[in-house]
Structures are given as structure tokens and as C-alpha cells.
Simulated scan of single mutants.
Amino acid sequence: MPKESVDSHTENTDPDVAAALAQGPFHTALRAAIHARGLGLDRLRHRLLARDLNVSTTSLSYWQHGRTQPEHPKSIEAVAALEEILNLPNGSLRSLLGPRRARGPRSLRVKQRRPEAVIGGGVAMKELCDRLPAAREHNLDVVTEQVTATIDKDGRDAGHTVTMLVRARRNNVDRHIAMFRGDPGCDIESVRVLAHRDCVVGRIARHPQEPMLLAEILFGVTLDQNDTHLMEFEIVDGTGDRAQCYGHGFRYPVEHYTLQVRFDPEQLPRRVFRFAQSRLGTDLHETGSVVINNWMTAQISQSRVEPGALGIGWEW
């Protein structure tokens, strides 16, 4: 587009939106533009569908809250369409995305085993890991992990219970570091970590600005190489905004993983799906539908999980 056209379009842009486009970041500018146009995410999704661009409301919500960022070519194409739909200058949102980041299982396995890279959170997670350096160590293999997440009657993530069977990779291993990142609006100071079976909770590091924490889960015994330990703990939340997915990041292979998401009978989603990511914080890639059973539970189960992220998402 000629420079004159871009400048003219900018003059007609809401002042708050223009400031957000000038300063960034991407999610702030997108959120301001959506608010200024007064369009709901469902309407945006349908306008994108009319252009043969299938972007879920979950992805749109996460884009505008900074939890994920468009990276896939189709997602970038959708951002270009959003610029038109939201009456923004051509390229104004895309310019805030910066260069495309390296993605994919191979680069993830080789280069991205740092917690802040796989779990997400960037600098904030790095700062937490600096406070609990054991979070960066690979002292345990996860044999099996079962997570049961609960969504309350208001649609919020009320927390999750984790049952893990771990195996020591070396001698003198006595703890697991649990990592948690809450939904937008989460009050991290109110999040509790509870020990249920064959463990106790040690130190907890909470980030002062971001909804993230690390918690020591102490075994109460010291494992030698190849010893196993079965434990159960819970992270209790219920303070964030209405949830739209539950994802779990894996830095290393896991032999078997099961995730259950339990919904309140009074607040059932209209659609449920499973997704995969190269790491938490990137686009959600739907990999299939999930059925809610008679117990109001959606479940996925997978063996030989590779590094990356898996989860269950839904639309209200």
C-alpha cells in the first residue's frame, strides 16, 4: 500500500488504537482494535470463516491476551484479514509480530529444554527458575502422569490434581519442581499447592507481576538412580478469567500422559477438541474432537509423548 494510503488510514484510526499500534506489543494493539470496533470474538471468527480462514475463538482470545502469538502461515494470513476487518492500516498488526520464531519438534528437542522456552513465560519464568535452579535440572523421568483439571460453574479453572510416577536419573534425588501458569486474571498469590499422597510441599516461588509459580514437591525420601516414586499433589486456583483450554508443556519425553477436564453440569462447552503445540505460548493446532462423557469429563491419553505441549480446548 502506498505511504499516503497508510497515513490516511492511520488518521481515521481511534487514538487509543493508533497509540497501541505505534507502541505494541501485538496483543495490546489487537485487543484495543477489537474493543474499538465493538466486535465479539464469535463475530470475528465468522468473518474470518467467510474468507476461508478457520481461527477458533480460543486462539483469538489468546492472541489478544498475549498467551499465544500467530506464527503459522495461515495464522499470519488471518492477521492480515483482521487488519481489514478491524479497519487498520495494512501491515500494522503484522509488523508487531517480529520475525518468525523457530518451531517444530526437532528444534524443540535440541534447543528448547529450558523451562521458560517450553512452558512459556519468557523472562518471568526465567526469573522464577533463577530462584529455584532445580527447575532447570533433568533429574527425573516421568513414567506416567495423570492430570485432572476442574472447570467451575463460572467457567474458570478451579485447579488440577496431578498423580505422577517418576524415576530417578541419578542418585540423591528428593524432589520434583511443579510449574504453573494461570489464565489471564489469575491472582497468583491466592493459588495454593497442596500435597495429597507421599509428598510434602517445600518452597514456592511466585512471580510478582505474572500469574506463574514454581513449587518444590518433596518426596520425603531420597531416590537412587532408577528408583521410582509415586505421588499426588494439587494446585488450587479459581481466580482467573473464564478458561478456554488446559495445556501441559513437556520438556522431555513422557512414557504415558492422561488429561481429564471436568466441567460443571451447569456450564458445559458447546465444542471440545484436543490440541498440540510446539511449546506453550504458540498457536493451538487442533488435532481432533473430544467427547464429554456422562460424568461431564473430557479426556485424552497418549503414550510416548515427545517434548512440546498437549491439551484440551473448548468453545463456550
Score class of each variant (00 low, 15 high):
Ile235Phe: 03
Ile235Thr: 12
Ile235Asn: 07
Val236Leu: 14
Val236Ile: 14
Asp237Arg: 04
Asp237Tyr: 04
Gly238Trp: 03
Gly238Met: 05
Gly240Ile: 12
Asp241Ile: 13
Asp241Pro: 06
Asp241Phe: 05
Asp241Gln: 13
Arg242Thr: 14
Ala243Met: 09
Gln244His: 10
Gln244Asn: 14
Gln244Pro: 02
Cys245Phe: 09
Cys245Asp: 14
Gly247Ile: 05
His248Ala: 10
His248Pro: 00
His248Asp: 06
His248Met: 09
Gly249Met: 02
Gly249Asp: 01
Gly249Arg: 00
Phe250Cys: 00
Tyr252Leu: 13
Val254Cys: 03
His256Lys: 12
Thr258Asp: 11
Leu259Gly: 09
Gln260Ala: 13
Gln260Thr: 09
Gln260Trp: 08
Gln260Leu: 04
Val261Arg: 05
Val261Ser: 08
Arg262Thr: 11
Phe263Leu: 05
Phe263Pro: 02
Phe263His: 11
Asp264Cys: 09
Asp264Tyr: 01
Asp264Glu: 09
Pro265Cys: 07
Pro265Gln: 08
Pro269Ala: 11
Arg270Ile: 15
Arg270Phe: 10
Arg270Glu: 11
Arg271Lys: 15
Arg274Val: 07
Phe275Gln: 07
Phe275Trp: 01
Gln277Asp: 04
Arg279Ala: 14
Arg279Ile: 09
Leu280Asp: 06
Leu280Trp: 01
Leu280Phe: 05
Thr282Gly: 08
